[in-house]
Amino acid sequence: MTWTRRAGELAVGLLPIVLLLGLWQGLVFLKYAPPTLLPGPVTVFSRFFSLLGDPQFLQHGATTSFRLFSGFALAVAVGVGLGILAVGNRVVAAILRPLIRVLAPVPKIALYPAFILTLGFDHSSKIALVFVDAVFPILLATYQGALSVEPKLVWSARAAGVSQTRALFTIVLMAALPSILTGCRIGLVIACIVVFLSEMINSTDGLGYLLVRAARNFQTVDMFVPIISISILGLILNAAFNALRARLLVGYPEDN
């Protein structure tokens, strides 16, 4: 695709976002919506940028990020590990498959009260929730990716004297990498969403809590700020992830 065409498409893509923002500002400007119910985008974004210099706000953001990354990292470790193991070991697969079948469609958020009861109100219950929510897409993607790895890749390694276990965690893992990364990306977005919700439902800090606190005090501007923050965080993480993915997958065939 040519550069101009890309730029053109980007412009077309920005159009609805600009239109929406314009409509939003227009509604407020023409006083169709009372500012207490719908503050204008200028107000909201200037509040967002001024808060970026506020250490307290940043502290809440850091708390959310900490929970997000802890839960996500745990999910990657367990999801990838178990997924690869299930391909190498029949017993693990026989236990794991029905468990996934039953647990994957269960709304994990329902487990949140149980985590609060057993792990307390602090970080651990949120991290646990992020973990259980993010682990399934990663586990499934890893397992399916690893299952469809060309066996001759493994054979080539085995013939060079590599052990079965080592081949599993080097060759199968690397060959399944495109699929694993797809799972991780889905897991990352889910982690973003879930950490925010967990803080909204039950927390005394974090971005989600800021939203609830603002809602309680009818500070509409401050209600929009956390939502914008999590959306921007998600976009940044997504972009970072895509960059990482492009680096990791240099040699792989395109279509994936």
Partner: peptide, 30 residues
């Protein structure tokens, strides 16, 4: 249609990481 896709894609990408249930307090307000 490429045009329709180009029109909607960035918007969808922007709202993808927004927790929909988090909009609840604002929507309830309205």
């Amino acid at each position: 249609s490429r045009a329709v896709a180009a029109f909607f894609n960035p918007l969808l990408m922007t709202i993808y990481p927004v927790p929909k249930a988090a909009l609840m307090p604002i929507i309830m307000l309205w």
